[in-house]
C-alpha cells in the first residue's frame, strides 16, 4: 500500500511537471524582428562625453542639463536624500576628484561643484556583478539597463564606485511633479535606474538631452558628445584643447566621461 502510493505520487508529479514544460514549447511563432538599422540613428564605435569644467564652472547655479534630463526621462523629484533618484547632478570637486584635491588647491576649484553622471565605463563593475544581465554594455559602449529584468538586488549599486545608480525605494510616479511624458516610460518600485546616454534620442539622430541644452545655454563645447574611436570626432578634438581627467582612474573601470580642467 505504502509503496504503491509513493509510486503514484511520483508518477503524478512527473506528469504535472511534463505538462508544465510542454506549454511554453508548444507556443506559436509570429513575424520576425528586422535586423535592419533604424534610418537616421546616430552610431558610434564608442560613445563618450567631454565636460569642459572651466566653462561649466562659470555658471555656478546652472541646472539646465539636470532639468532637461530629468524632465525628459520622467525622473522623480524626491526631497528626502535617502530615496533620491538622480541621473545627472552636481557634486563638490573635492569629493568627485578625491585624488586631485589638496589643501592648497585653487579656491576657485575646491569649493565648486562639478557635473557627475554614469561614466559608461569600458570595464563596468555593475555589469560584472549583475546576476540577471539586467545591465550590460552595448557594442557602442553605452551601459544599458533593462528594468523589466531587474530583480532589485542592488548589487550594481554596491559595485558602482561613482554612486551613479539609483534605486526606486517606492513608486516614483507621485514624485514626478513636472508632468509625466507619456512617450518615455516611468519606472516601477523596486528597480534600479541610471543615465542611458539618451538611447531613445540617438535613435532619432539627436545628441543626449543634457549635451543639447548645455550647448544652447552655456555655449558650444561646454559638453561634447561623440565617438571617441573616431579621430575626427568632436570629443577627440575637445580633448586636445587641454588637460583632461577622469573619476577614480585607478580602479580600472575606464570611465568614458572626460573632464577638461
Amino acid at each position: 500500500m505504502d509503496g504503491s502510493r509513493r509510486a503514484f505520487l511520483k508518477t503524478a508529479g512527473c506528469a504535472i511537471l511534463g505538462a508544465g514544460l510542454a506549454a511554453p514549447i508548444a507556443r506559436t511563432v509570429g513575424g520576425a524582428v528586422s535586423a535592419d538599422a533604424t534610418p537616421g540613428e546616430l552610431k558610434a564605435g564608442r560613445w563618450a562625453i567631454v565636460v569642459d569644467v572651466r566653462k561649466c564652472l562659470q555658471r555656478e547655479n546652472c541646472r539646465a542639463c539636470i532639468d532637461a534630463c530629468h524632465v525628459a526621462h520622467n525622473v522623480p523629484l524626491i526631497k528626502n536624500p535617502a530615496h533620491e533618484i538622480k541621473w545627472i547632478w552636481k557634486e563638490p570637486f573635492k569629493d568627485t576628484f578625491e585624488a586631485e584635491a589638496h589643501p592648497h588647491l585653487d579656491k576657485g576649484l575646491a569649493g565648486q561643484h562639478v557635473l557627475v553622471l554614469c561614466n559608461h565605463c569600458d570595464n563596468p563593475p555593475c555589469v560584472r556583478v549583475c546576476p540577471t544581465k539586467a545591465t550590460w554594455k552595448r557594442a557602442d559602449g553605452i551601459v544599458m539597463m533593462d528594468q523589466h529584468r531587474c530583480i532589485g538586488c542592488r548589487y550594481c549599486i554596491a559595485g558602482c564606485p561613482y554612486g551613479s545608480r539609483s534605486f526606486n525605494w517606492q513608486d516614483p510616479r507621485p514624485f514626478i511633479t513636472t508632468g509625466i511624458k507619456p512617450e518615455y516610460p516611468t519606472r516601477m518600485k523596486g528597480v534600479v535606474e541610471k543615465c542611458t546616454f539618451c538611447t531613445e534620442r540617438l535613435l532619432k539622430g539627436l545628441a543626449p538631452a543634457c549635451v543639447e541644452v548645455c550647448n544652447k545655454v552655456a555655449g558650444p563645447g561646454t559638453m561634447t558628445f561623440g565617438d571617441i574611436r573616431d579621430p575626427g570626432s568632436d570629443v577627440v578634438r575637445m580633448l586636445k584643447t587641454g588637460f583632461s581627467i577622469r573619476r577614480k582612474p585607478g580602479l580600472g573601470t575606464e570611465p568614458q566621461i572626460f573632464y577638461l580642467v
Partner: peptide, 22 residues
C-alpha cells in the same frame, strides 16, 4: 503577450526597432 515580450527584448536589449509582420 509573447509578441510584446519579444518586442521588449529586441528594443531594450538588442537595439532593434523594426518588426516585420507575417
Amino acid at each position: 503577450m509573447d509578441l510584446l515580450n519579444r518586442w521588449r527584448d529586441a528594443v531594450v536589449r538588442e537595439d532593434r526597432h523594426t518588426y516585420v509582420s507575417q
